[in-house]
């Protein structure tokens, strides 16, 4: 998902970006962006404090209800095949899906942003080589690559440890998504950097004798920050989708279930052929709403940036 959504983004070449704060203000004036931001904030809230909202995560042993109960007053979203409350699972799933999505996006942005800035700033052979690699990653079925990489990585690290309270199973997913989805970010950042490189303030910095790393850090990066934010939000949407797909296939962590893991359980429990629509509905809608909201925000920022350029020209 991130690939194609960002290709949309990269087809527009932006000359200059400024005033991140102003963009944020303009964003709040658009009703679609406002709704989307509200949704994302609510989701983040439930991701931050699931216990306060729905109590601790229910497991097979702590579940009390009957299996596969349709939605009712006591179980708003119904129960799963082990009698766990789907509202409980979905709210807890928000934490995993959002954290994995955000971390993957962060890695994607670091790799993509770094490669994009280096390629754009250095130009020449370095650029040609890096972009060749980026194009390859853009074209390839990176999802299948992620499928192979995840178990390999997991067997290499071992999956019984935790880092910052996140189990390594999930961290391998984060790493794998980051590694396979950086290319469109790199393309966008590179084209930005290319045009910034020709600007006078960068030229002056070069004349003064600042090192390339310093110029990138002090003069290039601050000017592409807003673009990175716009792209980052779209990348988060893509990461959440990829994560849910990987978890659905069974690469998630059963002890820290994300929305995709829940849907994977639903599939194993044959929920579709049992007609247990609620088992499918709650986690799936959560994914859908998150991805749509993120895409709307990303596109809105993108449009505002675009208009900014048009006004300044």
């Amino acid at each position: 998902m991130s690939a194609s959504a960002s290709v949309n983004l990269s087809t527009r070449i932006r000359k200059r970006v400024s005033g991140g704060n102003r963009i944020a203000l303009l964003l709040l004036r658009r009703w679609d962006a406002r709704i989307a931001i509200m949704i994302v904030s609510l989701l983040t809230l439930s991701g931050v404090a699931p216990e306060t909202l729905v109590g601790p995560l229910q497991t097979a042993t702590t579940a009390t209800a009957d299996a596969l109960l349709p939605p009712s007053g006591t179980h708003l979203f119904g129960t799963d095949d082990l009698g766990r409350d789907l509202l409980n699972l979905t709210v807890h799933g928000a934490r995993i899906s959002l954290v994995v999505g955000a971390l993957s996006a962060a890695i994607t942005l670091v790799i993509g942003g770094g490669i994009g800035m280096i390629a754009g700033y250095r130009g020449g052979r370095v650029d040609a080589l890096l972009m060749r690699v980026a194009d390859t990653f853009l074209i390839l079925p990176t999802f299948v690559l992620a499928l192979i990489l995840a178990p390999i990585l997991r067997e290499l690290i071992g999956d019984q440890t935790e880092i910052f309270g996140i189990r390594t199973t999930l961290l391998t997913i984060v790493a794998v998504i980051g590694f396979t989805s950086w290319s469109s970010t790199a393309r966008i950042v590179r084209s930005q950097t290319l045009s910034l490189r020709e600007r006078t303030f960068v030229e002056r910095a070069r004349l003064v004798g600042l090192s390339p790393m310093r110029i990138i850090a002090r003069h290039i990066f601050p000017n592409i920050r807003t673009v990175l934010v716009a792209n980052g939000i779209v990348v988060i949407a893509g990461s959440i989708l990829t994560e849910s797909t990987l978890s659905f296939i069974g690469l998630g962590d059963p002890f820290q279930p994300s929305w995709g893991t829940i849907l994977g359980n639903a599939q194993s429990a044959a929920a579709p052929s049992l007609g247990a629509w609620w088992f499918i509905a709650a986690p799936g809608c959560a994914i859908l709403i998150t991805v749509v909201a993120c895409t709307i925000i990303g596109n809105a920022i993108d449009e505002l940036l675009d208009r900014d350029v048009r006004v300044q020209r």
Binding site: T245, F248, Q267, S273, G275, W277, I280, G284, I287, L288
Partner: peptide
């Protein structure tokens, strides 16, 4: 279009089964 584009394929499939095959 955005909604269709944002749906995981597998979820779409599960919904279609529930509706057109099971129900």
């Amino acid at each position: 279009a955005l909604i269709l584009y944002s749906m995981p394929y597998f979820w779409l499939g599960m919904l279609l089964i529930t509706l057109f095959a099971t129900t």
